[in-house]
Write a protein that binds this DNA or RNA. Structure first.
Lengths: 202, 202
DNA sequence: CTGGTAACTTACTCTCGGGTCACTTAACCG
DNA sequence: CGGTTAAGTGACCCGAGAGTAAGTTACCAG
């Protein structure tokens, strides 16, 4: 009989519990943003209480940083690998999308942490998030430069704008995907390929 | 000598002060989101105190609704007019963008209120914002349908995805624009026309 | 079976921000 | 002028959520 005890150890190792809390935190932070998310709610989702959360992560910022680093590291790594493989400029967007969809198929809120505008403007979180964004922007800028120059567009400000719009496109695709849990990474990739082919002739 | 008095009337009519507060509120809500924005800060930006803000708008929700309605009404009206004028499907995106840029040239944060994810999930604000989004989504869906069917893409789910990505594109263009106050609406429109022409051959 | 430690909780404190009360000053009208 | 009203404030209340102190239970080594 596994009746859940109200008090005392429940026998779950710290490492495993921490992983649960990071997953729940990522979803809450991704859904409501840093300022809108509640530590008590995150603990409740996992079935524990706030003090344990604080014992393991120290503070709201500590938990957020743990979530952010997990998301940011996986994301930058995946994109870096894809970009390093090279290929035709107009094939890169789809390849990058495929990598992102595959990486985050079961963790769709993670991407949002990098783009959370409700984090405090100063501090560790802002610095870490800005760093991840800078790295991703570098890739986006590289891709945009290759794509636009291959089309005869050379204005560096245009390139910046395209790079930023690209991250926004990823953002909306992921938001749309979050609302459709039945669509898996492969279906999502196929959909994007079909649309880009039809709309842009890529 | 116009020394600012600490107490007593400063001689500004209610209507004018309300307008100032709505402008300041729109910027703060747009920047930090509903949950991240502070009423005291909004009052401070205008040079008054919280009680006056509450006397005029009743609550945080009241102020937010005032900002939201101003933004939403202007936006839906502008887009409706543009869409009603008709034209080639692949010319519509640029026309709509031009309308949005012109309408919100001096009020760039307004768009963000419609897409604020930090508002409480229930209540007047959520309902009003959902209603504006629904109206805009209808236009986006209409445009996406025309565009995709003209390219031989008929999957209704694809169309939904494209419509949502389109609103995300507008979102990122406006974010980019907010960071570049020197770029006016005409320059922004010209940039988009150039990029779309180069990238998609539209 | 016993002592130590890791996994937890109950029941707090404290700060910040939404919201309010009672009051003060200026403008306007007769 | 004097009285009314609109514009405005300082100082407060209160609830929610971040963060904490001290205790409870289970597991494990000897």
């Amino acid at each position: 009989m596994t009746e859940s005890r109200a008090v005392g150890t429940k026998g779950m190792p710290r490492e495993e519990r921490e992983a649960q809390l990071v997953v729940a935190g990522t979803e809450e932070f991704g859904r409501a943003g840093y300022s809108g998310a509640s530590m008590a709610e995150i603990a409740r989702r996992v079935g524990v209480t706030k003090p344990l959360l604080y014992q393991y992560f120290g503070s709201k910022d500590g938990l957020y940083l743990a979530c952010l680093h997990r998301a940011g590291d996986r994301l930058t790594e995946g994109v870096a690998t894809t970009m390093a493989a090279g290929g035709e400029p107009d094939q890169m967007p789809l390849k990058v999308l495929a990598a992102i969809f595959t990486t985050f198929d079961h963790d769709r809120y993670a991407w949002r942490l990098l783009r959370d505008t409700t984090v405090p403007a100063r501090g560790d979180i802002a610095a870490a998030a800005a760093d991840y964004r800078r790295r991703l922007d570098t890739f986006a800028l590289l891709g945009a430069t290759q794509l636009l120059t291959s089309r005869g567009l050379a204005d560096p400000v245009d390139i910046e704008a395209v790079a930023q719009v690209w991250t926004g496109v990823v953002d909306s695709l992921i938001s749309w995907w979050i609302d459709r849990p039945d669509e898996d990474a492969a279906a999502m990739t196929a959909r994007c390929a079909r649309i880009m082919g039809g709309l842009f002739g890529w």
